[in-house]
Amino acid sequence: METKEKEVKTAKKEKKPLEKVCIICAKGSLEDVYATLVMANGAVMEGIETNVFFTFFGLEGITKKTMNHLHTATTGNPAMRMPGGLPFPTMLGGLPGVETAVSSMMRKQMEALDMPPVDEFLEMITAGGGTIYACKLAVDMFKLKKEDLSDEVDSIITIGEFYELCDGDRTQIIFT
């Protein structure tokens, strides 16, 4: 009886660390792309094999022209606050230039926390051994070419190929 209890205890203690994460980014707002990048970079820093798959509007985050100028939505975002903490009126968010101004302010605040711009963040992830992929279907849909994408993008792959990359029983797929 006693030995059984002991066995249960040791079984509980044994940790099975994550070996691989496959992160999918399907949205192109500032916060969606950064959520992906922070999670991917964090995984690489923990020694976890990391694949990142950008699809649909997420492609904004790896397209050379747009990646360093991502916006956050100032309308339809109930969590948006004015500096000082008052709620941000949706009507104000719709005025021309407001979204650009708010987004650039957010980027500045992120920079102050040592969060790099997107191009540099992608470099950090690949420097640590992470791999960045673009979705073939979305690339075709948005009429993009490999040259339009960041040099850190390894290749353009199909969803089938992506799933092949997700093998292993200590692998997690994360959809941000």
Binding site: M45, E46, G47, E123, M124, A127, G128, G129
Partner: peptide, 13 residues
């Protein structure tokens, strides 16, 4: 640089 840092301290820069 970051790449070298990973080489010096693999899996935990």
């Amino acid at each position: 640089d970051i790449k070298e840092l990973y080489k010096l301290f693999p899996k935990g820069p």
